[in-house]
Simulated assay, not measured.
Amino acid sequence: MRGTLSLAGLLLALLPLDVLACATCSLREPESAVRSALLVVGLMLTPFLVVGVGLWAVRRAGREDGA
Rank of each mutant, 00 (worst) to 15 (best):
M1A: 06
M1W: 02
R2N: 04
G3E: 10
T4G: 03
T4S: 07
S6K: 14
L7T: 04
G9L: 13
L10A: 14
L10S: 12
A13Q: 00
A13F: 01
L14G: 15
L17P: 09
L17W: 06
L17Y: 05
D18E: 10
D18T: 01
V19S: 02
A21V: 04
C22F: 11
C22Q: 10
C22K: 13
C22E: 14
T24I: 09
T24A: 12
T24Y: 14
L27N: 00
L27H: 04
R28N: 08
E29K: 09
E29Y: 09
P30H: 02
P30K: 11
P30Q: 05
P30R: 12
S32T: 06
S32I: 00
A33M: 12
A33D: 11
R35A: 10
S36W: 03
S36H: 08
S36N: 06
S36R: 11
A37T: 00
A37P: 00
L38I: 09
V40P: 02
V41N: 00
V41L: 12
V41D: 00
G42I: 02
G42T: 03
G42K: 05
L43R: 14
L43W: 12
L43A: 12
L43P: 00
M44N: 00
L45I: 09
L45M: 08
F48N: 08
F48D: 04
L49I: 13
L49Y: 03
L49W: 09
V50T: 15
V50W: 12
V51D: 01
G52E: 04
G52I: 08
V53K: 07
G54F: 07
L55P: 00
W56N: 02
V58H: 14
V58S: 14
V58T: 15
R60C: 02
A61S: 14
A61P: 03
G62P: 00
G62V: 15
G62E: 15
R63L: 03
R63S: 05
R63M: 04
E64Y: 02
D65E: 14
D65R: 15
D65W: 15
D65H: 13
D65G: 08
G66S: 08
A67N: 04
